[in-house]
Design a binder for these strands. Structure first.
Lengths: 337, 337
DNA sequence: ATGAAAGCGCTAACAG
DNA sequence: CTGTTAGCGCTTTCAT
C-alpha cells in the first residue's frame, strides 16, 4: 500500500485543518477556554476525538512552565520502611500539585549511579535516599534542587532531612539498661557497616557502652543481611559467640523480628531470657508475637519534610543555603523488652 | 536595584553568548557529541556550570520523542498489597527505560476522578487500579494507552490484567472443606461490597456454598473496614451473629490477621476452634503467629504483566484490541487452617 | 570543528 | 468569537 504515510503523531494543526479552523481555535476547544462558539467547540472536539488527537505534554510544558515533577529515590519499595516515606511524599507533593517519579536503587552503586545520571534529565527536583557519595555528588553537581534523606554524614553540604540516631540509640539503650540489661548486643546491617560508609548506630552503641561500662566490645556487634532471614542468621552467630546475651538491639525492625523468632524457636523466652529492640517503628512490629519494642521514626513526616525542604531550596535565593531538618525518633515500648 | 532582570531560566543561548560560541556548540558539549574540540567543550561546560545552566526537559522532549513516562495508579502505598505491584512495575519499566509516576487514590471517587483528569496530561501511558467507572471511562476516553488492573468486570472493553478470583475462592473453600469445615464465614471489604460495585468474592462464595450445601447464607458475610483493626471489629460482629463459626475466609490477609488475633484474644484456639484463611499472600502472613494460610497472588508478576500489556497496547495497530491477561492465585497452606 | 537555518507542537498576546 | 503572529528551548539537518 504505497502512499500510506509513516505513522506520525496527530498534531493540533492536523485537527485544525481537518475541522476547517485555526489551530488557536482547536487550542481553545481543548483547553475549555471561554471565548469560543459552543457549536464550534463541539465540532472541533468531535474531530479531535475521531482523529485520536492528544496534546503533546512537551509542547505544552514548553509554553506553560507550571508543571513540577519531583524525583523520589528509595532503595526498595518492598522494604516496609519506604512505603511510609513514599506515602508522605505523595501526600505533600499532591498538596502542591506536583507529580512524583519513583526510582528504586536497591542501594546498589551501579543502580544509584544510573539513577543519578537519569534523574536530572527528567525532573525538576529530587529527594531521596542515596548511600554512595559518587551518586550523591553527581545529582548535586547537576544543579537540580536536591534534598538528601538520612544523610548520615555522607554529604554535609547537601540540604537534607536527617534522623537523630544519637537520640534514638540513647533512648533504646537507656531503656534496656533500665530493664536491668548489661550484656546488650547489636545486630547491624552489613551494607551500612561496610568500611568507608558512615554508620552512626555502631559508633553510638560503642560510645554508650564505654560510657556506662557495659561488658561488651566490637564482637558484640553482629552484621546481618537486611531482612527477616538475615536477622535470624545473625542471631545464630551471635548466640554462638555470646550465649549469655540478654538483650539485642537490632539495626531495624525486620532484623529484630527475624532474630527474635529464631531465638524463640531455639527455646529462649522473650523477653525473659533475651529481650529484643527494633528500630523503625514499622506497622508490622505490632502484629508479631510478642509485639516488638522499637525506636519509632515518623516516616510519613520525613516524607512531608522532604518535600517542604526541597520546595524551600527551590525558592531560596541562589546559593543561600537551607537549614537541614531533623526527625526525632521515639521509644515505643511493647512486649519484647 | 533597578536593572535587575526578573529571574528567567538560563537557556542554551545564554550559555552560547557567554561562551562566545553558537548554541549548537553548546548542545554538542552538553550532549557529549564527538564533533567538537576538546578544549572548546571544556570551556563551554565550564561556563554552563557557572551559569547554572540546565537543559529544559520539555524542549528536549519536544525534539527527541524518546522518553516514555508511565502513570501507575494505586489505592495506597501503605496497604502492603501495592508495594509488591509497584516493585514489579518499577522493574519492568526500568528494563524498558521508562519513567514511572505514581498516584495514590485511596480508592476514593473524588481522588480517582482528579487523577483521571490529570494523568493524560502528564504521561504517555497508564496502568493501575481504579474502582469507579467514572474515572476509568475518563482515562479510557482520553485515548491514552491504558491497562486496568484487577478489572473485576468493571470495564470489559478496557485492556486489563485480571486476577482469577473464581479459582482462588474455589481453592480456598475446597481447602477449608477438606479440613472438615462447613460453617465457613466470609469477612468482606465493605468498600468493595458497596452496592453497584462488582464483587466477585462475595458472589463466588455464595455460589460455592449453595453448590456444596453449606449451612450459610448472606448473614455469614461480614463487611469490614480494610485494615487489621477492621478485621478485628468484624470478627466481633461475626461471633455475635454466628458463635458457631469454625472457619473464616477473609477478603485479604490484613483483615484475616486482624480477625485471627481478635479471636485468639477472645480465647479461641487457631486453628482448633476457628481456622483463618487470607487472600493476597503478603510477606507479613509468614511472620504472624500462627502463620497465615492464604491464597497467594503473584503481585510482582502482576506489575510486570501490566507493563507488558500496556506496551502491547502502544504498539498494537490502531484499535486492534489486546487480549486480557490473567493471574492465577494459588493456595499456600500454613498453620492457621 | 563550527555555525546557520529549520522546525518539534503548543499557547499567549494581539488583531480583527 | 476567530485568526495571525510570536515565540517557548532545544536538536537535527545541512553548509562551511
Amino acid at each position: 500500500m504505497p502512499g500510506t504515510k509513516k505513522s506520525r503523531r496527530v498534531t493540533i494543526d492536523d485537527v485544525a485543518r481537518s475541522a476547517g479552523v485555526s489551530r488557536q481555535t482547536v487550542s481553545r476547544a481543548i483547553n475549555d477556554k471561554g471565548e469560543i462558539d459552543p457549536e464550534t467547540r463541539r465540532r472541533v472536539l468531535q474531530v479531535a476525538q475521531e482523529m485520536g488527537y492528544r496534546p503533546s505534554r512537551f509542547a505544552r510544558g514548553m509554553v506553560r512552565q507550571d508543571v513540577t515533577t519531583l524525583a523520589l529515590i528509595i532503595a526498595d519499595v518492598l522494604n516496609p520502611f519506604f512505603p511510609e516515606v513514599v506515602s508522605g511524599v505523595l501526600e505533600a507533593a499532591d498538596e502542591r500539585g506536583w507529580q512524583v517519579v519513583v526510582y528504586a536503587t536497591g542501594s546498589e552503586l551501579d543502580k544509584e549511579l544510573a539513577v543519578a545520571e537519569s534523574v536530572p534529565n527528567h525532573v525538576d527536583a529530587c529527594v531521596g535516599f542515596l548511600l554512595h557519595t559518587g551518586a550523591i555528588d553527581k545529582i548535586a553537581a547537576s544543579g537540580i534542587p536536591f534534598v538528601l534523606l538520612d544523610r548520615g554524614g555522607r554529604a554535609p553540604a547537601v540540604p537534607g532531612v536527617d534522623i537523630d540516631f544519637a537520640s534514638g540509640i540513647r533512648q533504646g539503650l537507656d531503656h534496656l539498661m533500665e530493664q536491668g540489661h548489661r550484656r546488650i548486643a547489636m545486630i547491624d546491617d552489613h551494607a551500612h557497616a561496610r568500611p568507608g560508609t558512615h554508620n552512626a548506630r555502631r559508633e553510638l552503641y560503642l560510645a554508650f557502652a564505654a560510657e556506662h561500662g557495659l561488658p561488651v566490645d566490637e564482637t558484640w556487634i553482629q552484621p546481618a543481611v537486611n531482612s527477616v532471614d538475615g536477622g535470624a542468621a545473625a542471631m545464630d552467630e551471635l548466640l554462638a559467640a555470646h550465649p549469655d546475651v540478654t538483650a539485642v538491639f537490632a539495626y531495624n525492625d525486620h532484623i529484630a523480628i527475624g532474630a527474635m523468632r529464631r531465638a524463640m524457636r531455639l527455646g529462649l523466652a522473650v523477653p525473659g531470657n533475651c529481650a529484643f529492640l527494633g528500630f523503625d517503628g514499622l506497622a508490622i512490629g505490632e502484629l508479631v508475637d510478642p509485639p516488638l519494642t522499637t525506636i519509632h521514626i515518623d516516616k510519613r513526616r520525613l516524607g512531608h519534610l522532604a518535600v517542604d525542604q526541597v520546595a524551600a531550596v527551590m525558592t531560596a535565593p541562589q546559593g543561600s543555603g537551607v537549614e537541614a531538618m531533623t526527625i526525632d525518633p521515639r521509644l515505643v515500648v511493647r512486649l519484647s523488652t
